[in-house]
Design a protein around this nucleic acid. Sequence first.
DNA 1: TAGATTGTTAATCGATTAACAATC
DNA 2: TAGATTGTTAATCGATTAACAATC
Lengths: 222, 222
Amino acid sequence: MDRKDKVSTTVIRRLPKYHRYLEELHEKGVERISSNELSQLIGFTASQIRQDLNNFGGFGQQGYGYNVKDLQNELSKILGLNRVYNAVVIGAGNLGQALSNYKGFEDVGFKILALADVDKEVVGTEIHDKKVIDFDDLKSFIKEQDVHIGIITVPKEQAQKVADTLVESGVKGIWNFAPVDIEVPNHVIIENVRLNDSLFVLSYFIKEEELRQEMERRQKNK
Amino acid sequence: MDRKDKVSTTVIRRLPKYHRYLEELHEKGVERISSNELSQLIGFTASQIRQDLNNFGGFGQQGYGYNVKDLQNELSKILGLNRVYNAVVIGAGNLGQALSNYKGFEDVGFKILALADVDKEVVGTEIHDKKVIDFDDLKSFIKEQDVHIGIITVPKEQAQKVADTLVESGVKGIWNFAPVDIEVPNHVIIENVRLNDSLFVLSYFIKEEELRQEMERRQKNK
DNA sequence: TAGATTGTTAATCGATTAACAATC
DNA sequence: TAGATTGTTAATCGATTAACAATC
């Protein structure tokens, strides 16, 4: 392995941004870019960009920079995007429906095969061409259809139970939208989307900015 | 001000988690907790917990710990949650509808007043009791209704234009779900929700875990 | 008072930035 | 070859952890 022991998650969480900007550049027909030019676009320092990328290999060339298409490709591979993931959404509520209908995920290789719910009213129906299966049948569905990812959009009270079922069924990863910390064995990857937390952080900074403006005003009136 | 100059965003992004755990404890009837006990629940070190909280004041008491209810209350204030924010969702697609129907936001003081869209087909209709207004009327709506937050759920191509309109209309913050970096003046707070990025990170770690398991298997067979 | 636990300072660790030799 | 720009090492900065005196 030419890869270093382990790359910090701080770095990993920056990779999607590189990926996105390089895709954009590629679409625009840009062929090469230096860490300096990329720095100005993306807002990281050139030094950081070079450090980040060198965690995974020397993708650049001295005196030239980086080939946009190649680098984008490498990033796709690093992120594990050169394949298709099968997914199931558990919880056919509003969020679950929205996610299962979002075309953007399929475009990048995440295929939502079905939704699952406990509500007998919706079980058996179709939502945007996707079947809603019975939660009781989830386990067998996951095994038969080779589902890799479970997407949890159920209320927080049910989230752990759903996660347990997913783990038993053998999914590799869980994308969790429920606002709780879920316990899973080490070999199952969990990625949380904390909508509430994000909103709270927004709230914090709005409050801070209001305070700042208030102080500024007072300063002036003195 | 007894508050330090500026608290790092690293700390700020941990606050919602404290808030959540303390709420849980409070609901369970727990009255007091030490940084050590909280550490075991929440997974941060006791030292970090004390450091974090002391950015905002000495909420604890030597020999006793922290009063759960009081601390939770303080955190609410710090996060700016002791008030109501009015919000509008721009983009009445699936995600926009899901967000505007999610009760959890209103419960914590974020009131979604309406949706806005350009599609004349949906403009004028109601989605979950919320009016869909014409994007052209957004500016006046925001001013009349004292909207603080704009929630962007439009496709990435339109996101900047929507943001510009929101800024002109005087919103204080933008909650952006479009997968682009939006430019706004400094006094407007922007908080991004990067669903794609989150999914990519999940993908990365699934791939890594697969590699790990593969290596383990090879090791054994040697 | 004795025991517990904070608030805070100091030490360590990790991440970012700077610098520059290597090299295309 | 000369100029540009990487890959990488060293320096700096910031965040986390450890330690302990202050104090309830």
